[in-house]
Design a protein around this nucleic acid. Structure first.
Lengths: 99, 99
DNA sequence: ATTTATGTTCGTAAATATACGAACAATATT
DNA sequence: AATATTGTTCGTATATTTACGAACATAAAT
């Protein structure tokens, strides 16, 4: 049994987690692009975004770990897509949050 | 004239800024409380939240600087309220973002 | 003029985030 | 087998975030 007292509700933690993922403009840009066309390749994004390739990988990892996107390797390219289930979860939480 | 190229759109920067403010569960909790009852005192929040008083001040400052709340001193207490204009702006941006 | 109540600011420590290039991995092509 | 293409991971530097207690500020009450 957990002796640790939870400090925040699951919902609060989730809202914070998703919001955190949206907390950098380049990640907002990435998600806008992905949600517009559902999927796209790392390389396509790298051409447009003002950051190094390795930095893009890091941001994609943040979004992946927050559950908002998922990647699949299609060598030598990598295709990233919105994770629709979590996207909708986030959408619902944010709408609920703002009333 | 600005020689600096803007890297992101104003909308992307705004979404990131507001999201960033929501990126910590205690700030989510604070905003939930404030949006439920419109205003409340620092002390009332401090009683409920699992952080030191000084830490609460810091988080309130983050929310204030993001424009989501505003504080007014009513000595010796400080009353914080939702900044409705920016709250609605954020709401619209987030809803638009998630389609 | 002290003391009390309520928050804020300061100093500081530890953790996390952001950025880049170099090195690496995996596959396709030559 | 060697090369080229595409991304990821590693190493690293710098900046920001988060947290706390101590010190400070302000006004009311004694």
């Amino acid at each position: 049994m957990p002796t640790e007292t939870k400090k925040y509700t699951d919902k609060q933690e989730l809202i914070a987690k998703f919001s955190n993922a949206l907390g950098h403009p380049v990640r907002v840009a990435i998600l806008q692009q992905l949600s517009k066309q559902s999927c796209c390749f790392h390389g396509d994004m790298a051409e447009v975004l003002p950051i190094a390739n390795s930095t893009l990988s890091q941001h994609l990892k943040v979004l992946r770990e927050a559950g908002l996107i998922q990647g699949e390797i299609d060598p030598p390219k990598t295709k990233y897509c919105i994770n629709k289930e979590n996207w909708n979860l986030a959408k619902g939480l944010m709408i609920g949050f703002f009333d």
